[in-house]
Computed example of a mutant assay.
Amino acid sequence: MKNSIVQQKNRPIISELVILRFVACLAVVMIHAIETSLENYTGELSTIETLFYHTIRMAMMFGTPTFVFLSELLLAKSYQGDLPANFLSTRAKYLLLPYLSMAVVYGVIFHANESLNAVFIAVLKNIFLADFTVYFVLIIFQFYLLHFFLHSYLKTWNRNIVLITSLIINLLYLAFFNFVPPISFIPNVDFLWYHLSWLPFPGWLFYFTLGYYCGRHYHEFKMILSKFQKLVFFIPIPVFLLVLILSYTQIIGVVSSKRIDIIFYTTTMIFLLIYLSSSVKHLHPIIVKISNYSFGIYLLHKIFMYYLKPMPILNSYGFTLYVFITSIILSMIVIYFVNKLSFGKYIVGRINTISISNVNGEKTRKKSEIS
């Protein structure tokens, strides 16, 4: 496999990870574009169309877990030694403040037609229960805390034991919520069951440890992918078929990335995407741009989808693409202009400043400090 790493501000920029972030971002937006289409075309779709949308939606479920994996990989690769003194404060500033801002924005927009008290309750639920699209920020910040407290131990522990143990914990945790029905005598148990299934870190633990060891031993990781390239290339197909079988037979009926089978599917997709993109010599500017804006796109895209309505000239497929593309473009426009304000990055997230020249090995420029 060809090396696609170039240096920037004493850190390498890894083009395949730029692609991975780009693809993960598009996958998340596509899931929500399909959901928006299904909401607007309820009762109008044929069985085949419904099955098609469900299949594509399930195929995109690797998106959010990939962000968890990627965030830890970048940390482990960037900080091989001690962590800087401002490690947590920097991440709190650039992650938690946009999270709080979006909690208010989502609460106001999605409950604008309700009472002031309902809006206030919605905002509180968004903040403390992550009851909105931006929930993944709290998950990632939990892993920043884990990295802060465990990185010195993870360096010395047997990685195979850590990976297997974390996988078992992750599978058991999700299996409990996938297969055990809610306890009926607990008040609001459905709401509680749903949030407990994905907000606490055990539901994502394997992505954290996998990201840590892949980042810490990145060259070795890529060599392993190259050694088993045929397996890496073909294994996602049967794994995804298993996901569909479990879904269509209702053995695991929930449509979510918080399913035990999605752990295996996401892992195979991450390996495949990194393997395929490692041979890419030059990235298109659109890939780099969307990757740079991915955090803000994740924060904002669902807001624009909320306002987009079907048009007579579009069928459900056209509407899905319209929602997908428009929400990305509008998100990027808002991110760009809000970031012109001194405090804008604390509202809609900071824009990564990796340029196309950096990734393609030309003149280097300064990169944003957060990974």
Score class of each variant (00 low, 15 high):
Met1Ile: 01
Ser4Asn: 15
Gln8Gly: 14
Lys9Asp: 15
Asn10Ser: 10
Pro12Ser: 06
Ile14Leu: 13
Ser15Trp: 05
Arg21Gly: 11
Arg21Val: 11
Val23Gly: 06
Ala24Tyr: 00
Val28Glu: 04
His32Val: 01
Ala33Phe: 00
Ala33Val: 00
Thr36Trp: 04
Glu39Ala: 14
Tyr41Ala: 03
Thr47Tyr: 11
Glu49Tyr: 01
Glu49Phe: 00
Leu51His: 08
Tyr53Leu: 06
His54Asp: 15
Thr55Glu: 04
Met58Gly: 05
Thr64Leu: 03
Thr66Ser: 07
Thr66Met: 03
Asn86Arg: 08
Asn86Cys: 04
Lys93Val: 00
Tyr94Ile: 07
Leu96Cys: 13
Ser101Asn: 06
Val105Gly: 13
Tyr106Asn: 02
Tyr106Met: 02
Tyr106Leu: 03
Gly107Trp: 10
Gly107Tyr: 12
Val108Gln: 03
Ile109Pro: 02
Glu114Met: 07
Leu116Val: 10
Val119Gly: 07
Phe120Met: 14
Ile121Ala: 12
Ile121Arg: 05
Ala130Asp: 11
Ile140Phe: 05
Phe141Gly: 02
His151Ser: 02
Asn158Ala: 03
Ile161Ala: 14
Ile164His: 04
Ile168Cys: 01
Leu174Lys: 07
Phe177Trp: 11
Ile186His: 01
Asp190Leu: 15
Asp190Asn: 15
Leu192Ser: 01
Leu196Asn: 08
Leu196Ser: 06
Trp198Asp: 09
Trp198Thr: 04
Leu199Asn: 14
Pro200Ala: 00
Phe208Tyr: 15
Gly211Cys: 08
Gly211Met: 05
Arg216Glu: 15
His219Pro: 13
Gln229Phe: 05
Gln229Cys: 06
Ile252Gln: 13
Ser256Asn: 10
Ser256Arg: 05
Asp261Ile: 08
Asp261Tyr: 08
Ile263Glu: 08
Thr266Tyr: 11
Thr267Asn: 11
Thr268Gln: 03
Thr268Tyr: 02
Ile270Thr: 09
Tyr275His: 05
Leu276Asp: 10
Lys281Ala: 15
His282Glu: 15
His284Trp: 14
Pro285Trp: 08
Ile287Leu: 06
Lys289Met: 09
Asn292Thr: 00
Gly296Tyr: 03
Tyr298Arg: 02
Lys302Glu: 14
Ile303Asn: 07
Ile303Trp: 10
Leu314Phe: 14
Asn315Gln: 10
Thr320Ser: 15
Val323Glu: 07
Ile325Gly: 09
Ile329Met: 14
Ile333Met: 10
Phe337Val: 12
Gly344Phe: 04
Lys345Asn: 05
Val348His: 12
Val348Met: 11
Asn352Val: 03
Thr353Ile: 02
Ile356Val: 15
Asn358Ala: 13
Lys366Phe: 14
Lys367Ser: 15
Ser368Arg: 11
Ile370Asp: 15
